[in-house]
Simulated assay, not measured.
Amino acid sequence: MFHNPSDEQRRELLQEAKTIAVVGLSNKPDRTSYMVSAAMQNVGYKIIPVNPMIAGETVLGEKVVASLTDIEEAVDIVNVFRRSEDIPPVAEETLKMKQKPKAFWLQQGIANEQAAEQVSAEGIQVIMDLCIKVDHALLRIGKK
Rank of each mutant, 00 (worst) to 15 (best):
E57A: 08
K96Y: 09
V59L: 09
A74Q: 11
R83M: 14
I48Y: 05
F104K: 05
K143A: 02
N112H: 02
A55N: 06
V90C: 11
T58V: 08
K100V: 10
R10I: 15
D129P: 01
V50W: 07
S120L: 09
K143H: 12
I127Q: 06
V36T: 06
M40L: 15
Q41Y: 04
N112K: 10
E16C: 15
N27Q: 03
E92T: 07
G24N: 01
N51P: 05
A74D: 14
K46I: 00
N51Y: 05
Q41C: 00
T32F: 08
Y34H: 13
D7F: 00
D7Y: 02
D70T: 01
K133C: 01
R83I: 14
W105N: 10
L138W: 00
P101I: 02
K63H: 02
S120I: 00
D135I: 03
K98R: 12
N27G: 13
N42G: 12
K98S: 05
V90L: 14
V64R: 05
N42Y: 01
E92D: 15
K28Y: 07
V78S: 13
V78P: 13
V126M: 13
D135V: 02
G109I: 03
V90G: 11
S84H: 03
K63R: 13
I141Y: 00
S84E: 07
E93N: 12
T32M: 14
W105K: 10
D86G: 08
M53L: 05
Q118A: 07
M128R: 10
D70G: 06
I54W: 08
C131H: 02
E72K: 11
A21W: 01
Q114A: 07
L130V: 12
A17D: 13
A55Y: 02
I124H: 03
C131T: 12
A91T: 04
E92S: 14
S6M: 07
T94F: 09
G44E: 11
P52L: 04
E93S: 11
C131I: 08
V36H: 00
S84M: 00
Q107N: 12
S33T: 06
M40Y: 00
T69I: 06
E73S: 12
L68K: 00
I54T: 05
E57H: 09
R31I: 11
H136R: 03
V90A: 08
S84A: 08
Q107E: 14
I47R: 02
A137L: 13
P52E: 08
Q99N: 12
E73G: 10
K28D: 15
K100M: 08
L106I: 05
K100I: 06
G56E: 12
I132H: 01
P49A: 14
L13T: 06
M35D: 03
V64F: 14
M35G: 01
E117R: 14
V119K: 07
T58W: 00
K143N: 06
I127T: 13
P29D: 12
V36F: 02
E57F: 02
M40R: 01
V64A: 09
I110R: 09
R83T: 02
N51G: 04
V64Y: 13
M53T: 12
L139R: 01
D7L: 04
L139E: 06
R83K: 11
A21D: 05
M53C: 01
R140S: 15
A111L: 10
I47T: 00
I47D: 07
H136V: 02
L13W: 03
Q107D: 10
A121L: 01
H136E: 03
F104Y: 04
Y45L: 06
Y34T: 10
C131Y: 04
A66H: 13
